[in-house]
Every structure is written in structure tokens, then in C-alpha cells.
């Protein structure tokens, strides 16, 4: 599904070069449930942004479903973000003046899907994340957990190959975090591929593979038998 080889990202600021990602190689198989861990500044977000095609690497290769992504132009990247990837952010990143339904339907606008179809699918998706009764609410009228559910619904709306989440529970209390993680576990059970960044062990414990990073490099990459994964 994902094949990353010697992926690099360097930021040049004046005469210092920050190697945010310094030669990372790994693969993600279909239906993997991966946690990327590491201390702050270790390059987790940089990696996830590259995987999410939000950014382009300074070196190395990234093959997503057999296609080399690192050399694609902006329009093709936008298409991949739209169709192949569902991104969930720590800060939810919903449009503040749009309803939950409109927020969830937003990616479909860029898939050139008709309004009726958009609303139908967004409604279903909201129902799936348990917000069938909050469709007309704006983000400001919802709790953090509800907002993140909306964001997850939006990430899922185009039936993406992979779901990427950058500290999806980072802004939530522990009870709500558990609810959101249950949502991800469910997605994984239904066959979705999930890669999530976190620095909390309790969150990583939901996943069956943990990649630990330090200074832009992968330190360890270990799989755990499914039985060990906390429910």
C-alpha cells in the first residue's frame, strides 16, 4: 500500500539546515494500524504530511498504491489528497461557518459530485460516526469529541485507501480520546488502513504496529500480535 524509501525532508533556514526527516524507509500493508511515536520535534508530523501528500520530500521515494508520489505535480497531489487519503488533524480543522454536513461533504465538491449525492453520502457518514442528529450544527456548537468525529467522517467520505491522523486525540480529554480511538479501531476492523501520530503510549496501545522516531530517523518498528492490542 505504502512504500517509503530513504525519504528525506530538510528545511533550510539561513545557514542552518534542519533535517526534519533524515532517510526514512518502511512499508505499510493494507489494513495496517500503525502508530508513529517519538518526542516532540522528532519528525512525526513531517513524515505524516509527506504521506498525506501535503508536502513534497527533498529526497527519497514514496510509492502509494504503486504510484511514485514524490515527483507528482500539484494538481495530481490534490487529487490524491482528495481521493486516496483521509487526513485527520489534531486541531480538527473544520470550516467554522459551515454545518457538520457541509464540512463532511466538502471533499466531494472537489470530486465533482452533485449536491444531492454529496449530502446523501455526508449524512450517512455522520450517522456512522454517531452524529446523525448533529448535521446542521456548526463546529462552535459542538464538543471537541464531536468535532473530531466530524473530521473523521470528512476523512472517510471519499472512501480513501488510507487514513492518516496527526495526534487526533491531542486536544481531547481521556474519555473523549477513548471514544475517538474506538472509532479508529472500528475503522481498522472494517478493513481500513490507519497511520496515526501520537506521543501517548495509551493511544499507541490501540495499534498493532508502533514506529518510534528520533531526530528524523526510525529507531524501532515493532509489530504486536492482535491479542495484545488493548480493546
Amino acid at each position: 500500500m505504502i512504500k517509503v524509501h530513504d525519504l528525506k525532508k530538510a528545511y533550510v533556514m539561513g545557514d542552518i539546515t534542519v533535517r526534519a526527516l533524515d532517510g526514512v524507509s518502511f512499508e505499510v500493508a493494507p489494513n495496517d494500524f500503525v502508530a508513529i511515536m517519538g518526542s516532540s520535534g522528532s519528525g512525526k508530523s513531517t513524515l505524516l504530511n509527506l504521506l498525506g501528500c501535503l508536502d513534497t520530500p527533498s529526497g527519497g521515494s514514496y510509492i502509494l498504491r504503486g504510484h511514485e508520489v514524490s515527483t507528482m505535480n500539484d494538481d495530481r497531489l490534490a487529487r490524491i489528497r482528495n481521493k486516496e487519503i483521509g487526513f485527520v488533524f489534531q486541531t480538527f480543522n473544520l470550516l467554522p461557518r459551515s454545518s457538520a454536513l457541509d464540512n463532511v461533504a466538502l471533499p466531494l465538491i472537489y470530486s465533482r459530485i452533485s449536491r444531492d449525492e454529496r449530502n446523501k453520502r455526508a449524512g450517512k457518514m455522520l450517522q456512522m460516526v454517531g452524529l446523525g442528529d448533529r448535521m446542521d450544527h456548526r463546529p462552535s456548537e459542538m464538543s471537541g469529541g464531536q468535532r473530531q468525529r466530524v473530521a473523521v467522517a470528512r476523512a472517510l467520505i471519499n472512501d480513501p485507501a488510507i487514513i492518516l491522523a496527526d495526534e487526533p486525540t491531542g486536544n481531547l480529554d481521556s474519555t473523549t480520546s477513548k471514544e475517538i480511538m474506538d472509532l479508529f479501531v472500528n475503522l481498522h476492523r472494517r478493513g481500513n488502513t490507519v497511520v496515526m501520530v501520537t506521543h501517548e503510549e495509551e493511544i499507541a496501545a490501540y495499534c498493532h504496529r508502533v514506529i518510534r522516531m528520533r531526530d528524523g530517523k526510525i529507531m524501532t518498528d515493532e509489530r504486536r500480535p492482535i491479542e495484545e492490542v488493548s480493546a
Binding site: 498525506g52 500539484d74 490534490a78 487529487r79 472537489y110 470528512r154
Partner: peptide, 16 residues
């Protein structure tokens, strides 16, 4: 700006 970022992240092209 933030909204632009969000739209871009979910698949809006520069043209959009």
C-alpha cells in the same frame, strides 16, 4: 488562510 489550507488538504487544486 486556515480555510484555504483545509480546502487544499482535502483535495482542492490551486485552480479551485
Amino acid at each position: 488562510t486556515r480555510e484555504i489550507g483545509i480546502r487544499r488538504a482535502i483535495g482542492a487544486t490551486q485552480k479551485d
